[in-house]
Every structure is written in structure tokens, then in C-alpha cells.
Design a protein around this nucleic acid. Structure first.
Lengths: 246, 246
DNA sequence: ACATAAATGTCGCCC
DNA sequence: GGGCGACGTTTATGT
């Protein structure tokens, strides 16, 4: 493990270390007093203060204050980092194109600079996603309703792929929309689009009568407005979590 | 400015420094080899690897790898940090309630620990937001269309507050929806909800006839599908940026 | 606390 | 590369 770390470096020392770290593909942590300006999709300015600048070898840049989960300013991966000493300050600039964006951090004082060569351990396994919910339903279709039979996932339609397509105990087609958490009205609209598309598709095959196509929204819970829209459209809601209760 | 920084500390040394930093309300940066586990709204596990852990005095915790703008794991502000030495590892745990969530980072090696007491400079001025777009339109209503007169912003309706409400050159009511960047079909749906709500409201006042209510989407550009939906509903699109071109 | 909508959202997938 | 939707979205705001 190669970690370089300097305390209260001069601007010039910091510049050398930064250039080495850029070259070596290191993950960089930089504490200091700085101003920040950003110009791109929007534009912003931030006055002098103590902050943490994180520079990643993939081009990401993060400026963090002492508050909040979000960086106060940032640059996404794919940007290019450059450092220079200008007008008595250490200027770190991260730029990208498409869209053209520039993040500039000007340090008057650098308190601590650390750089680490990072390797491995990037494989995260996440549970409780929409995919888990789908798996759960395919394994136990009766959770949707007795007699439900899944036929296809990601079934294509003119309104896009529907999460689960199947038939109910009467043999009528059912469109199932999965949401991993409490949903608002937008999810009902999404389900309605699939149902409408499938009705049009089946109607074109079979003749003039509007065919029966049911819509089921599977989600832990729904908002009041969403419940109204479900009722309006004659859709059902099944309360189900992506992971079984303990 | 108080910065403490230790290179390759023992677990016990690191623990002392962490507890001092928690006490002092410092912003903490911790490089090392660790495993990460999270349990809460979802659950995840991350095998051993070199990462950067940032701990903020407001309770936020961020675990960053060498890639991505997003932390691979995190805890939002309002959480509580605790550190301990357990089973030969430095365990840093951040917990919160409502919902109950726990983030645990176990370090086998600590390469660098830095902590800084940060002060001031938290006021960011951002330009180019939806608010800027609204200001621009209120100052120059003719940018929407000749003869347009704004009457109200955030006008309430049963579908929520509409961005700008006004009348056109013929005196017909106009609902304006503002978007700071290129939009998809969802924005048209949002506009449609406001227009529908206003038609219902005015119709209830005036009688049986559906009153004329126009919908205008102001955005730099729209996707093809959004353009279709705009045409379907008889709405207009005005191409406008939140900030004037240079 | 709940519902709603914005965000420099970011990220991943598919066309 | 654009369009589209999910995300442990986060964040702000109104009720």
C-alpha cells in the first residue's frame, strides 16, 4: 500500500504531490481553505472557507463542507484534473466536455494532502431492489393473487417493457407493475400506459371489442392520490415488500 | 486552524483520534483497507478493499471508492457515529432511526487519518436554476409569446401549485410549466395535470362548457416523445434557457 | 410526518 | 450518443 501524506505543504510541494498522484492514478484527499467556482449546466460561486476536496483517478471531483450528504460542488467521472500555482494560490481545475463544464478550486492554505493507490474490492452486493421483488413474485406468484401465473418479464409493448406479464385464474391477461417502495400517482400512469398499449395490441388481433386487460400495482404502499387513480382505472394494488418481513 | 493527521496509526491510536474528532466536531477523512456492511431500507455487503471514509460532524458518513461521484455506501446527516476496536479491527458504525439504518465499516488497516475543524463559508450562490428561468420570464413575458401577461406564480390548484399562471393576448388563461433543461414526457404530464385542474375549476364556476385553458411548456428543448404528447394535448413549447446566451 | 417536485441530480440499460 | 426510468436517490418546501 502506497500512501503519501503531507501536512501544511507549500503550494509548490502540494502541486508536486498532486501531479504525482494524478500520474499514479491515486485517490486524493485535500483539506484546506479555498474558494470554489463552477460553470457549466448551471453556475455557482462559493466564498472562502475550509473544505475537503476529493479527487478520483476516474475524473470525479467532490468538494465537501462539514454538512450534508451531497458535495457542495462536484464534477462527474470522466473529467480531467489539472493543478497549477497561480497568483499565490494552488488552483485545482476539473473540466469535461459534453456538456462543457469547469470546476475550479483555489486554495489559499493547504492543511493536509493525502494520496492513496487504491485497488480491488469494488463488488457491492445489494439486496431489497426491484429485481428482488420480481424474483420473489416469480417464485411465489400467489403473493400477487391466487391463481396468478406469470408468463413473461420485461414483455415488450408499444409503451415499453412491462415488469411482469401473466394471466389470472380466469385466464385474463394481467399487467403487473413493480415498485420497491411507496409510490405516488406517476406509477399508476406508467401502469395505465402498459395496459392501454396491451389492450390496443390485443384488440387489433381479435376485433372491435375492447379486450379485458387487468392492471396490478405491486408496492409496499401507495399515496392517497395514487389510490384514487388506481380506483378510477379499475386497477388493483397488492401490498408487498421486496424482501420478506423478518 | 486545527488539523490533526496521523499516518499508519495503530487501531487504538486511530480510535483516540476519532473520539477526539467526534468530540471536537471535526470533518474526518480516513483512508484504509476495510469491509463495509449496510442494513436499512435495503442491505448491502462490500468485501475488503482500500477506501476513503468521510465522517461529518452533522452525522453524515460517506464511503468512497476510486470510482464514481456517488459514495458506494453512506449514511445521511443526523446519524450518530461511534468507533470501537473489536476483534482486531477498528469498527466505525453510523446509525440513525426513522428509518432504522446502520452502516458499519471495519478497518483491518488504517493508512491515514486526518481531522479538521471547519469554519464558515457555507453560502453557495447558484445561477441557472428553475428560479432564474422564472425571474427571466417575469421580467420579459414576451419571451413566452407576444401579449403574454403573467398574473401569478405558484398559483395553487387541486393538482398542486403551477409555476406561472397568466393570460394570453386574447385574454385566455395560460398555464406555464418551467423546466431548466431538456425534458421528457413526464413534464408534459405534469403540465396536463395543472391544465386539467384549472379547466375543472373554471368550468365549475362558469357552467357546462369546457373553458379554454392553454398549456405552455418552457424548456431549452424537448424529446421526440414529449413533443408528441405536447401536440396530442394541444400544448405549446417555447425554447428558452434559464440564462441568456452570451 | 406526509406529499410533491427540483436537482449541475447520478447511474445503468437499451436503442 | 440520446432517451428513459430507478435510486438506500437527496433535498427543499408546503400542508
Amino acid at each position: 500500500m502506497t500512501v503519501t501524506s503531507v501536512h501544511d505543504p507549500s503550494h509548490r510541494e502540494a502541486l508536486w504531490e498532486l501531479e504525482d498522484a494524478f500520474e499514479g492514478g491515486d485517490l486524493i484527499s485535500l483539506f484546506g481553505r479555498c474558494t470554489v467556482s463552477y460553470e457549466g449546466r448551471a453556475a455557482s460561486d462559493l466564498g472562502a472557507g475550509d473544505r475537503l476536496l476529493v479527487l478520483k483517478p476516474d475524473g470525479a471531483a467532490l468538494v465537501h463542507t462539514d454538512e450534508g450528504r451531497q458535495p457542495v460542488n462536484w464534477q462527474p467521472p470522466g473529467s480531467e484534473h489539472h493543478a497549477a500555482v497561480r497568483e499565490g494560490q494552488l488552483r485545482v481545475r476539473s473540466t469535461r466536455s459534453n456538456p462543457d463544464e469547469t470546476l475550479t478550486v483555489r486554495f489559499s492554505d493547504i492543511h493536509q494532502l493525502s494520496a492513496m493507490a487504491v485497488t480491488g474490492g469494488r463488488d457491492l452486493t445489494l439486496h431489497g431492489s426491484e429485481e428482488d421483488l420480481r424474483t420473489r413474485i416469480l417464485e411465489r406468484p400467489e403473493l400477487v393473487e391466487p391463481g396468478f401465473e406469470p408468463r413473461e418479464t420485461e414483455r415488450p409493448s408499444s409503451a415499453g417493457p412491462m415488469d411482469v406479464f401473466g394471466v389470472d385464474a380466469d385466464g385474463d391477461p394481467v399487467v403487473v407493475e413493480l415498485k420497491r417502495r411507496r409510490v405516488g400517482p406517476d406509477a399508476v400512469g406508467q401502469l395505465a400506459r402498459y395496459v392501454r398499449a396491451l389492450r390496443a395490441e390485443l384488440g387489433a388481433e381479435e376485433g372491435a371489442d375492447t379486450p379485458v386487460v387487468r392492471g396490478v400495482l405491486v408496492a409496499p404502499s401507495v399515496t392517497d392520490r395514487a389510490a384514487e387513480r388506481l380506483a378510477d382505472r379499475g386497477f388493483d394494488h397488492v401490498a408487498l415488500d421486496p424482501t420478506p418481513e423478518e
